[in-house]
Write a protein that binds this DNA or RNA. Structure first.
Lengths: 243, 243
DNA sequence: CCTCTAAATTCATATATATGACTAGTTGAC
DNA sequence: GTCAACTAGTCATATATATGAATTTAGAGG
């Protein structure tokens, strides 16, 4: 192959431009997580760079968690896998033992809807699909979620058979709708349980709740999901490391 | 200078060993934040490495936040500065406007004490110095802290004049006691206000509180401080980014 | 068909070198 | 004395190359 050219502003360093170009190619779905992307040698030849420069560019995407190196094998697109991380805010231990419980999900409602104000603001549209979901640990409800996704990027979501839903949504977004969630922002606060939330989580209205508002973004930093999750404050536990 | 040798296991890559060696030299207080560490060229010669390898080693410490590069000038030890980050858990806005308030600190008690169970477990000793501190935004108390530090590493802490205390403790630890806090772990949970806490923060006993337990570690990963902080859950707000 | 071996491929580490960008200090003209 | 130009030092980017480690593939031999 003759040398392709790197996109974007040529005043930027080559490794930055390579990073942007590769991100775009990943976003376009050119490679799946199953097969490796071209080797460092190939990329170097394709773009007319040295392997060192290619390596530095790829390093950036590996640090971002977009790519994954396997020595001797190749470099692979990393499948999205952090949907479950809302549970990182809550104790996963059972009341009795120290064993970790397995999270499960139960869909309550899926429907085309008009986005509430916060969701509309985050997503930039009012035409959305609304999903209500209850997440449990060993059949004990822990987390109640309202999830909003833009209707135009998720056509057919409401009609999907329930069997296609696993415990994680983001892999589904990727496989069925080509939407890859690259990062998300969680906003945490405390509040009291509303009647609806209390009923779903088998608590009393007014009980202290941890509230997590999440906006998720795709590779182009466009918002693709907004959700609000409620969990009992008593079970809330979070660890944050700083340096 | 003749080539010095890198410490630690020589089966490890050179850049890792350089990282460890530099960390040890920083821990020993060989360089202050005011003056640059030796240039990449010098380090390369000193340890018999190429500049590329030195660069990769230094990169690691820059990523960890231990060093700071300044193009054209040099590479510097970064002064500790994240003490104030407990405030990242709380709204810094005033009730009325959007302006950010300036945090202030007020010491209530400093005394040699026996560590409570949790602190003793975290620090590995019961001989500690206990500090009670109230932190405010624009004279409104926001955070009540109990702080425990090992007595043997902080001799003379109790006798320090109040004027030597700024809003941040970690720079003081470093300047007066040679203790550099490299990272810390915050554990967040939720509870109700005790009588003591309520009084200090001008709340009612039983009011919902956010509780932050922090263990701070030095460069050798030894615990050097344990604290527990209480703040009103109503003001609690935290943002977490994931990717 | 299976197993072991050898070779090819790919990422990981390391060296040597060159040029550009930025900073800080020095020199020199005015 | 002031300010501009120059210069040496330092990090930033980039190339070219070599060797090692881990994995995969191909093939020989049973």
């Amino acid at each position: 192959m003759a040398t392709s050219s790197l996109s974007s502003d040529d005043r930027l360093p080559a490794y930055v431009r390579l990073r942007d170009t590769l991100t775009a190619r990943i976003a376009a779905g050119e490679w799946t997580p199953d097969a490796p992307i071209p080797s460092e040698m190939r990329l170097a030849k394709e773009y007319g760079l040295s392997v060192g420069t290619v390596r530095k560019g790829v390093d950036g995407l590996v640090d971002e968690g977009l790519l994954e190196r396997r020595q001797g094998s190749g470099t692979y697109v990393r499948a999205p896998s952090f949907d479950a991380t809302l549970f990182r805010f809550f104790q996963l231990r059972e009341a009795d033992g120290s064993q970790r419980a397995i999270p499960s999900s139960q869909l309550i409602v899926r429907a085309v809807a008009t986005a509430p104000e916060e969701a509309a603001e985050a997503l930039g549209t009012t035409k959305v699909i609304k999903t209500l979901r209850l997440r449990s640990l060993s059949d004990v409800p822990v987390l109640y979620e309202e999830i909003y996704i833009p209707a135009d990027r998720f056509e057919g979501f409401v009609e999907l058979p329930a069997s296609s839903f696993g415990p994680l949504l983001y892999p589904l977004y990727f496989e069925r709708f080509g939407v890859l969630v690259k990062h998300a922002v969680d906003d945490l606060s405390f509040d009291q349980a509303s009647a609806t939330v209390a009923q779903q989580l088998r608590l009393k209205a007014g009980d202290p709740m941890a509230v997590i508002r999440r906006t998720a973004f795709d590779l182009k930093d466009k918002p693709v999901e907004w959700r609000i999750a409620h969990g009992s404050a008593a079970q809330f536990r979070y660890r944050s490391e700083i340096s």
